[in-house]
Design a protein around this nucleic acid. Structure first.
Lengths: 336, 336
DNA sequence: AAGGTCATCCAAAACGTTTTGGGAGTCAAG
DNA sequence: CTTGACTCCCAAAACGTTTTGGATGACCTT
């Protein structure tokens, strides 16, 4: 309701003084400051966001691009992460806008709109590809951004990622130690960085163990994808005794297929992401997760620091993967 | 990079003319318009969002409040809805910002920040309570908003909701027709409108069938909540033969408890929301869902129309609930 | 009394757009 | 030649804030 001009008028002060009083500058007397503060509180005054943004040349906004995969939008733990990120950004006066890719527009066009219209101060990119055109565009514009997941970009950029290679490497080796010899991998499209390194981890572990990485199926990173992948694997003559899945969603689809075909859990399964629901599948899903605490807070921190101009090299976080052992990985290495 | 002034200078035109040419006004010649258009395209010109917002007195933003329940953030299908909503809002030049409740702040304070700072043009409220202080505040300010879920507010407001009463009424009656007599309800906190009407539907159907609505447990609307509720119900001497759950998450927790206690599905179960994952539980979860097509699009439409000043009475959508029959509701009415 | 140092305050510019209220020129009708 | 209508263009104001670059006294020092 109230703006600076009205407030100043009612106090018999100039706009300048009122503004500076509220911002805590030292060149306004304590008495005046308090008088202004009280009047502002009583009037419920908040500076007009658009005006401040124009003057300060900051949008006070960060956009996060939402991948829109057919039938399934991003991993299920996204919203948790976004919420945490938005909360910590709000602490610094920034809001988080979600930016799904409009029908018939490319992710690139969307980035262009946000960057060239100066609608945001930074962007948060999720589900990076090995060669990501969004990353290249933002780099060419010198625009601040942080990614969830690494890329194969020649130029460094800020990111947070889990060490998928080591995680899947370790999971595969553990199955091998437990006596498994036919260890399958259900992976996602290899142009996604996360899917690629997870597969690499599995493959490396297989070769180190003297096994050939034949039992590989590529599918959509959804329950349906995992389900179909498992049906294919179960029909093979060299049926696996263990399956390492790129995501928990896929693993849940695999569990479902096992129950349908074998009537229960006949093969060891492990997923990745530690979805809350994994504790409630039957059997309870063994999985992996990124270490490192509050992910949303970390993203917010990196975003703020990259906006502040810190160099990319100091804004890269690669977190270790840890096992979350429940029941689905404990089967003996013999198919039912 | 470029602004209107630079563009005008390079074309030898006034700022006014360039602005009006790009906005398609009729008082600029076709030749000039085209010349301007081409120059703008070449320079990659986009109007500065902050400046336009200030001048037009519109924030071009809508905020959606995110409920932050301990351990679980909102229903899992939220993100899908938000994404659809954001996409359709973007078509009208609005962006959607997500607004989680910051630690140590109330939902009310948050609304105040957005409204008084004129940071947004409207708000989208989810998970309404029967008496919702956010609704009352926004109504007292005359600020545009739409809710997901009804309230018991004396004043009308725009909303989209499913007819939970009829849905749970019908589901309970169907169990009764199938021969069930001990039909339980696992519900959520009754200050939430959706939880309240769903319970009312179950209760009404029980009474109409001459049964007393004793088998009721209230829990968190999460897998864990459903799990604990089911453990309690299974220990009773008047153990139910069917359970109607307020949400799919709860139903999934119930299924898990059944498997643990009875070693399989011993009781009929039905949930609500049609989470994609329901098709992949074992048994596949029978559930209900709101009819009415693209929910996100509907919210976007209602938001735009309430911003445009349409009266609340014409902006209320109550959608029917339909069954999604899979396997978990088909058991005979006899406990194992 | 002059000069210097503070403490307080303020007018005006700037941010980049949209919109208001004309102004200049052309052309046809009277 | 005047008048009015029409086409095309523009200067200036406005949106509400932050920031720059002083201005005005009061008080102290010499």
């Amino acid at each position: 309701m109230a703006n600076l001009k009205q407030l100043a008028q009612s106090l018999g002060l100039s706009i300048t003084t009122v503004s500076r009083a509220l911002d805590g500058y030292s060149d306004v007397s304590a008495a005046t400051r308090q008088r202004v503060q009280e009047a502002a509180d009583k009037a419920g005054y908040r500076p007009n966001a658009s005006a401040r943004r124009l003057r300060k040349q900051r949008a006070e906004l960060v956009a996060v691009t939402l991948p829109s995969e057919p039938g399934h939008i991003g991993p299920l733990h996204f919203l948790d992460m976004l919420s945490g990120c938005a909360e910590h950004l709000a602490g610094a006066g920034l809001n988080l806008v979600i930016a799904p890719v409009p029908h018939g527009e490319s992710e690139l066009d969307m980035c262009r709109r946000f960057v060239d219209g100066r609608r945001v101060d930074a962007m948060l990119l999720v589900r990076t590809k090995r060669h990501d055109e969004r990353v290249e565009f933002l780099q060419s514009r010198g625009f601040p951004f942080v990614t969830n997941g690494r890329t194969e970009s020649a130029i460094q950029h800020p990111y947070i990622d889990g060490d998928g290679f080591s995680g899947f490497h370790a999971a595969t080796l553990r199955f091998h130690r437990d006596g498994h010899r036919r260890i399958a991998h259900v992976g996602g499209r290899q142009d996604y960085f996360f899917a690629h390194v997870r597969r690499q981890g599995w493959e490396a572990a297989m070769r180190e163990s003297g096994l050939s990485p034949d039992l590989y199926v590529e599918q959509m990173p959804t329950e349906q994808g995992g389900y179909e992948a498992a049906l294919g694997l179960l029909a093979r003559s060299d049926r696996p005794t263990a399956i390492v899945c790129a995501t928990d969603e896929m693993a849940i689809g695999v569990l479902r297929a096992l129950r349908e075909v074998d009537g229960g859990l006949s093969i060891s399964v492990v997923g990745h992401d530690d979805l809350p629901i994994g504790a409630f599948t039957s059997p309870a899903l063994s999985t992996m997760r990124m270490t490192g605490g509050n992910l949303g807070r970390s993203f917010a921190s990196l975003l703020l620091r990259t906006i502040a101009g810190e160099p990319a090299e100091t804004l890269q976080e690669l977190h270790a993967i840890e096992f979350v052992d429940r029941d689905s990985h404990r089967l003996p290495p013999v198919a039912a």
